[in-house]
Design a protein around this nucleic acid. Structure first.
Lengths: 122, 122
DNA sequence: TATCGCGCTATTAAAACGATAGCTTTTTTA
DNA sequence: TAAAAAAGCTATCGTTTTAATAGCGCGATA
């Protein structure tokens, strides 16, 4: 059977073609990584509860399937944003740096939510 | 044919179940929106070149297919982050606010890129 | 009127996701 | 220390999303 490379972890590599940039611009590579389903949500959630076991993280994400969670974790680890340590999964320094930059999105998201809701209800 | 409603624009609604939050936390709703392929890349690119025609934006994105670009544009418009004006697509105030928060990711992405590359070569 | 650029849409196939069951391995507990 | 429970995934399979590419309809030129 040719089962080679089935659980491969495919992450964007800066400097090589990525979604949005043939030359592999870092920001586009990062967007390629974080712009996958659940990627930012997992990073965000893990930051709030780390260290976390697989199941604890799964529970905190509320609706993520184990297959996708596992996939994202592999990618985030390969990208050096997440690691494993005592007590389970943790966020690396680089991961926290990125998380920190995402934090302000929280309040803007609230503002955006109000705008969206007021647009809906009429 | 079981595919009615195919041109439907399905965006996450804060306050209703979204990926990552059954109660629809704003940040998770926003992640749900921005965590779709090309979403952040399109927002980023449009900010750099706006106003832009569909084709100009498509060219700037380098490798996006028109179907996906169109889909993302519909979503971003429905979410109030992008609009159409003189000269084509533009970024709304809310869109720019979010873009502004993403900007710092640019330099962190460079740092991350170096780290990733040095991990690869050797 | 023929041509051109623009804004998409159509089509088809591949890849990603979602939902769920359940198999191993490790840790508790009785 | 055997049995039970929890953890960490993996397997499967149907649905959705994305990709790749061709090309249509329309308004502005030439």
């Amino acid at each position: 059977m040719k089962n080679m490379a089935k659980n491969k972890v495919n992450i964007p590599i800066p400097g090589k073609p990525v979604r949005g940039s043939k030359s592999g611009a870092p920001i586009m590579a990062l967007f390629d990584l974080l712009g996958r389903r659940w990627a930012m949500g997992v990073l965000w959630t893990l930051n709030e509860i780390e260290p976390a076991t697989f199941r604890k993280l799964q529970d905190s994400c509320e609706t993520i399937s184990p297959a996708v969670l596992n996939q994202r974790l592999k990618e985030l680890r390969a990208a050096g944003l997440v690691d494993r340590g005592e007590g389970g999964y943790i966020v690396t320094n680089m991961g926290q740096e990125i998380y920190t930059l995402l934090v302000p999105l929280g309040s803007t998201a609230k503002k955006w939510a109000k705008q969206q809701i007021s647009k809906t209800d009429t």
